[in-house]
Amino acid sequence: MNKTELPASQPGLAVPTIESRDLRKSFGAVEVLKGVSFKAYEHQVISIIGASGSGKSTFLRCLNFLEAPSSGEIDFKGRSLEIGGGRAPTRIEIEGLRRRTGMVFQQFNLWSHWTVLENIIKVPIHVHGVPRQQAVQRAMDLLAKVGLREKVNAYPASLSGGQQQRVAIARALAVEPELLLFDEPTSALDPELVGEVLAVIRALAKEGRTMLVVTHEMSFAREVSDKVVFFHDGRIEEEGPPAEVLRQPRSPRLGAFLKSVR
């Protein structure tokens, strides 16, 4: 059976794109992740919600080892990277995982010494060995997709936050990632700029991309995602389809959280 034909809502038979088992992370004496087990399948769009300090961003950043987990296991496409106890993943393994994922940050983190075009083509060229011409062609297509073709030679500093974030999304797509990680992609934006960025992310979700989105935008979580995961105090407190989780939360903590963000 062809994997791409698997309905996203019934992924039981397939290998998860990414899976964590009993993932823990401490900063000094403070344990911020207290054993998180999580699965994301191909074509799933998963919204990760929770109050600030609940560990949701740390969890996302542990998945590609921007934060080194203290213990636990991460499988990417069935390949295991074990942390603590067993053998620590090597830098090569970590780089290998990172090259197959794309990440979008809260603060955009565009490289300020490069133009928009350079920001998009440099990683494909220097990390993935894509021929320059091909990288440029693809970058132009992506810029058209995020509606910023005319900014191709601009520097990030001259763009609005919303434009920078759309470039950052194009940059993440340029590496043809098998998994897209969004770390609060609209939290640093002025309210009037949130819409343009969410529209781009929605379009990506419709394409069937595998996406993990840490977000505070409840309408986005409700309308776009296949699954919502609620973090509380370093653990997954509740998860499920948005219609159930967001309408009839079982956990009183999720209920309180949903009231507070409404």
């Binding site: 590609n64 995982l97 990440m103 940050f105 490289w111 300020s112 990390v127």
Partner: peptide
Amino acid sequence: GQIEAANAFGMT
């Protein structure tokens, strides 16, 4: 953040 972004994309 710019160094972190480079790391996230797997730069050596």
